[in-house]
Design a protein around this nucleic acid. Sequence first.
DNA 1: AAATGGTACTACAACGTTATAGGAGTGGCA
DNA 2: TGCCACTCCTATAACGTTGTAGTACCATTT
Lengths: 341, 341
Amino acid sequence: MATLRDVARKAGVSISTVSHVFNGYDDIPAETRKRVWDAARELDYHPNASARSLVSRRSNLLGLVVPGRAGMRHPFLYAVICGVAEAIAGTRFGLTLSVAEDDQRSLREQVNRWKEQRLEGLIAMGFAEDHPVAQAILESGIPAMLVDTILESPRVSWVKSNDTEGAAQAVRHLLSLGHRRIAYIHGLGGQICQERLDGYRLALSEAGIPFDPQLVEVADFTKSGGYRAMNRILSRANPTAVFAASDLMAFGAMECLRDRGLRLPEDMAIVGFDDIDAASHVTPALTTVRQFGDRMGKEAAETLVAFLEGRIEKPHPSLVGTELVIRRSCGYSAKPYSMMA
Amino acid sequence: MATLRDVARKAGVSISTVSHVFNGYDDIPAETRKRVWDAARELDYHPNASARSLVSRRSNLLGLVVPGRAGMRHPFLYAVICGVAEAIAGTRFGLTLSVAEDDQRSLREQVNRWKEQRLEGLIAMGFAEDHPVAQAILESGIPAMLVDTILESPRVSWVKSNDTEGAAQAVRHLLSLGHRRIAYIHGLGGQICQERLDGYRLALSEAGIPFDPQLVEVADFTKSGGYRAMNRILSRANPTAVFAASDLMAFGAMECLRDRGLRLPEDMAIVGFDDIDAASHVTPALTTVRQFGDRMGKEAAETLVAFLEGRIEKPHPSLVGTELVIRRSCGYSAKPYSMMA
DNA sequence: AAATGGTACTACAACGTTATAGGAGTGGCA
DNA sequence: TGCCACTCCTATAACGTTGTAGTACCATTT
């Protein structure tokens, strides 16, 4: 692989001159500049990133940290990746990928790698606040942005969806369709769950409907958890609609309703949260609150880069908006199938 | 950040000695060794990867190349990533991520980055054989393994599922349930599609059933394409079962069948291909041929690493087995819901 | 006593860049 | 003629490692 020395020799100038040409110094006349560029092209010269970072003392590398096999698969991983990639295109930064397994040993190895590679920043997703990986990020001292993990330090901040508003959108939709007894399948987890519950209560109170704990059940974000929660609600209350804090739990609830012989959406309206792929494939297609993984990734990366480039004092939290996607699970007001995505 | 020099000073030895300790030379007595390690720990020393690769002339970096927003989302991306990560854990290699957008300009930028970073190998997924990214990989001269893209050169090879056998498994299952008129929704694409068709024909001929072109329709791997293909088949033939070359097309076919008032699975059995997440969420849950993204990623990375470490002469192609996942879409022979994944 | 061999280190030259400082040559001007 | 400024270029010292070739010292062996 060609080096600066080879290019210099070929162009008949010194190494310094070649370096100056590539780095845009303005003390080189056009004629020399062209000779150097031509030589570089002919030799297929590409500056050695290692040599460059050695002397410039920056790796130009950001790390993307995602959970491994054992962890929960983050439904927006791909979207977040695309958002991050979009945000760093055109900056000096490249991306490295860390798949963090849960055990202490391989976590230590990962952290060592981050430090050896002198990563300038991290973007992590899919870890709970108290997960060892989240803690390791804090301890590492590396600036970071977390997606869906609320953790702050002088060099760490987060991005997440506006869960309260998203949940309120969902419930307002059901209210607008005339529903008054709206059940809620709550998810067990961190702050995010609390916010979705807040949104549910907010929308109800806006409509002057008192909060009824009989209509609320908690589940564990799984499909079968949703199934069981729905069962418990139906055993003591008679809602006309259900809002589930995740699409997966909504699917479980749908299964439960069908098993009890109810027709969807005629006998029960249902709304989910997330808009995972499957939401548009189930029958009836699920009305749900869409989260924008790409925007979260983009926002995370932009904030991190702004911090690393010194354009902001410290990284700051962001909320990304959600969008209610209306499909058929609340009734046939939506577009006919052939038109639907 | 501490350097070898700092550690040397603290331990009261020379830089060379410290380097020898860390690199496992055996001419250092235990006592000195300990002094050096202690100093390193106290200073939180991490060897500088850039300096190391500069002198050793290897980056220790593999690149993972995935399609961006514009490209088709590869359903197994996450699984492949996990497989790759598993395979390279414990090797000297780290991973960088390239999200390749389609336009020529950003593709050139990506290739430049690969060369500047001196990536030792690439793993790419989700690009057709004639996609510019696939061509760029070939031209780059960087050793590579492609997932689901059949392309070979002295330093490039591929991994994919055993599509023929997978398709045959699906059709044999339908045959074993007594079906004789089995429709096939063919996908339009590269070699992979041809192989699935081969598997369909193979299973039929094993059973002594003649191939009937009336039962086959081609679609474009989308849901709506599957819907239309199903429609065309039903307009001229009366199958009792359908096999679709992808789950997405199977969903379209299911929608079509329902729109025509057929009951599933009573009036029509259906099998898909891929086992995407949604397959277990639709109703009836889809029986399908599971592909193992993690195994493909692992195989790709292992082959690439073996080549780079000189353990094999050149990278070789691999076929990864598939598994028929039996759910309810071919009848209720399967486990009851509460037991299902 | 001199040669041999082993142990425990160290010196030094790379690796491919960048940045700083400086030098040669030319032209203008007092 | 001497001085200065300007243009175009180059020398050199880092950056943090690794690997090779040594050296100093001591204990054996001949």
